[in-house]
Design a protein around this nucleic acid. Structure first.
Length: 570
RNA sequence: UGGGGUAUCGCCAAGUGGUAAGGCAUCGGACUCUGACUCCGACAUUCGGUGGUUCGAAUCCAUCUACCCCAGCCA
């Protein structure tokens, strides 16, 4: 939506997003279906945490509402009290909100409609389109037939309307034990679509519900509740994933039998799969319960809360969801695209700061002892408005162990004996000596600096090929840095691996904790959740739970692209 | 062997009978006080296969093939 200079909001009419669902909606709008209304919903079941796959659905549903000037409801699909919990409701609300979407006062629960749903069931019975069936679960399964063979009709199928009404009411009243009876739609036991072979509509569950308590002991099935909840909320486009495609005839059957006026329609799209990632609930639970990760919000988890704790931004996730598109072909998106979206977002936003993860001491021999010098450096070259900050330079500094090599290969631009390198925002130094311990480990590097090459100074135009980051020994601060990598080794995705094999495919290096890193003192003031670019290394986020001003803890969100690493490999 | 779907570059994905968008990845090169960013360039004579219709087909027709989903009183 564009705001005109007069302050009048102009509705965007050139809906540029292109997907088959957008096309359908554009066409419905052209035909003035639903009087031009577009109303979607995101219907999570509160039985687990939201993950990146849900983000696609959230962005689609809320995105469509925004784009077509419509509305999107948040509706909890809480029709099965044995699986659902308040705790998940809370977490899901937090995640959807964090992603940047709002539903105003349209937060609903399928359980809000249990009375109406019951009435719909009674109506169906009265129309002779539903009956109470006494078959056991096993018998129902037998009677259903198979993919290739038609089913048989239940012996209870021809009960009178009166008897059905009486029995259904007594089911509701709690007269029968779990599993003893169900309400079934009377459709077609020989349908090639198994969903139409007299599907179960209501089952008996003497179970306390997280919202309705003990009021009910019969609960509607998803297939019954969903289309009717959609209709009650006046949803126009009910968007779900591919596996519900052959539930659509049942969805339509119920809507046609019970709803007058505008009828919601169901459309299906392919759910998101990501490389190096699993998203099935069972697999994720196995990781958490087996202690392979530290909870649902472990920064390696593909949950929304995991991404949040890792340091991903909602903007990056939304951009990603826009870019992957929406179609009906099963696909596996390269996680590199997600990382690209993240880097692009953080490149603009994240202040630069210097942090030495694996420090080695450098002594600048010709720099006076006890002298300190304040140098200025930009906070973010991509964003001049972010201003500048001061660095303190001195005789003893730390640099990255990796930025020095005694016997460098060709094209190594960093420090080595006799070679020069620039210290970012400071001076050019030259290595004159290397001090080692008895085992041959480098403990100190001796350098000289060229006072004429102060950063920003008039004589600073001398060029060297490499620039490295550093911190002063006497004002550096210690930090713990957690380097995260993919949870799974390459070539793994949800479809390519079964539940039992995931553990063997775990990446043993998915987390490396480094203590005693040396970082700029300004980081003492950083707040949990704050994000930075550690110069030349990557984007890092102060941990939401463990970071505080006395004990700094940063998560690596994603490393910077590294061309040198590529060259080295070859 | 029933029903429902899907096949366009390594990975996503537009395209709706008029002569294959875009993004990611990759590979070159320029720039660089981040080997980052940015910038320039390369990257589908061909759309799962085969026939056909047409002046013209990724788009229409026929046929074949591959893959995904469905036999919960889960969602």
């Amino acid at each position: 939506m564009r705001i005109l200079s007069r302050g009048v909001a102009k509705i965007n009419t050139d809906y540029s997003t292109s997907s088959f669902i957008h096309s359908i909606i554009r066409n419905d709008l052209k035909l003035n279906k639903y009087n031009g209304r577009v109303h979607t919903r995101f219907p999570p079941e509160p039985n687990g945490y939201l993950h990146i796959g849900h983000a696609k659905s959230i962005c689609l549903n809320f995105g469509i509402a925004e784009e077509f000037n419509g509305l999107c409801n948040l509706r909890f699909d809480d029709t099965n009290p044995t699986k659902e919990e308040e705790e998940f409701v809370r977490a899901i609300i937090e995640d959807v909100r964090w992603l940047g979407f709002s539903w105003d006062d349209r937060l609903f629960y399928a359980s809000d409609y249990f009375d109406q749903l019951y009435d719909f069931a009674v109506t169906l019975i009265k129309k002779g389109k539903a009956y109470v069936c006494d078959l056991s679960a096993e018998e129902i399964k037998e009677y259903r037939g198979t993919l290739n063979q038609p089913g048989k009709e239940s012996p209870y199928r021809s009960r009178s309307i009166e008897e059905n009404l009486d029995l259904f009411e007594r089911m509701k009243a709690g007269e029968f034990p779990n599993g003893s009876r169900v309400l079934r739609a009377k459709i077609d036991m020989s349908s090639p679509n198994l969903n139409m072979r007299d599907p179960v509509l209501y089952r008996i569950m003497h179970e306390k519900h997280h919202r309705t308590g003990d009021k009910w002991c019969i609960y509607p099935m998803y297939d019954f509740a969903h289309p009717l909840c959609d209709a009650i909320e006046k949803i126009t486009h009910s968007i779900c994933t591919l596996e519900f495609e052959d539930h659509r005839p049942l969805y339509d059957w119920l809507v046609d039998e019970l709803i007058e006026g505008d009828k919601p329609r169901q459309y299906e799209f392919a759910r998101l799969e990501l490389t190096n990632t699993v998203t099935s609930k069972r697999k994720l639970r196995k990781l958490v319960e087996g202690g392979y990760v530290r909870g649902w919000d472990d920064p390696r988890m593909p949950t929304i809360s995991g991404f949040r704790r890792r340091g991903y931004t909602p903007e990056a996730i939304r951009d990603f969801c826009d870019r992957i598109g929406v179609a009906k072909a099963n696909s596996i998106v390269d996680i590199a695209l997600l990382e690209h979206c993240l880097r692009e977002d953080l490149n603009k936003k994240a202040p630069r700061v210097m942090a030495v993860l694996d420090p080695v001491k450098v002594v600048i021999l010709n720099y006076p002892e006890n002298q300190e010098e304040v140098l200025e450096t930009e906070n973010n070259p991509e964003n001049p408005e972010s201003g500048k900050r001061n660095l303190v330079f001195s005789r003893n500094i730390f640099i990255e162990r990796e930025d020095f090599m005694e016997n460098p290969p060709k094209k190594y631009f960093r420090l080595s004996p006799g070679k020069e390198v620039r210290l970012k925002s400071a001076y050019i130094i030259k290595c004159v000596n290397v001090i080692k311990d008895a085992k041959g480990n480098i403990v100190e590097i001796h350098c000289t600096y060229d006072p004429e090459t102060k950063s920003g100074g008039g004589a600073s135009s001398r060029k060297v090929k490499g620039t490295i980051h550093w911190v002063s020994e006497n004002n550096a601060v210690d930090a713990e840095i957690r380097l995260y990598d993919y949870l799974f080794i390459d070539e793994i995705d949800d479809d390519s691996i079964n539940d039992n094999d995931i553990i063997s495919k775990l990446n043993p290096d998915s987390l490396k904790v480094i203590k005693n890193c040396k970082v700029e003192p300004i980081l003492k003031n950083s707040l949990p959740g704050e994000k930075f670019q550690f110069l030349r290394q990557g984007y890092f986020c102060a941990d939401l739970k463990d970071h505080n001003s006395k004990s700094l803890v940063f998560n690596r969100i994603v490393p910077l692209k590294d061309t040198w690493a590529k060259i080295k490999k070859q």
